[in-house]
Amino acid sequence: MNAIETKWIAVGSITDIPREGARCVEAGALRIAIFRTVDDDVYAIEDRCPHKGGPLSQGIVHGGCVTCPLHNMVIALESGEAQGADEGRATVFRTRQRDGLIFVSGADIASAEARQPVSTAA
């Protein structure tokens, strides 16, 4: 079991993620990409581009944005909003860092989970 701090769920340490990179956390049918920027800020976004569902975690991270690897939509890490002329918004999760550990808001995960389509392969 992961350590719990009321509703903040530890997902790993910041050093598990390369700078300007991302790694994924799986929560049931939900896949959350945890991003680390050059300045060691951490953001959590659902690993699905609002455009065609591309895995944002695989994109190039630059400044506070990630570019989706499938069709180059640029998503702001903090808000999940598509940048420039594109429209769309990816689900974001609040995060916290303490002592090098990353925590994601349990409440945000639970509400995103609730919005997931019911039928999954399992």
């Binding site: 598990d16 956390v25 799986e26």
Partner: peptide
């Protein structure tokens, strides 16, 4: 290695607590 493995798998029930 980090590229190919999820960083963590969390129990969604735990999130709902």
């Amino acid at each position: 290695k980090h590229e190919f493995k999820p960083m963590a798998t969390i129990d969604t029930l735990q999130a709902a607590e």
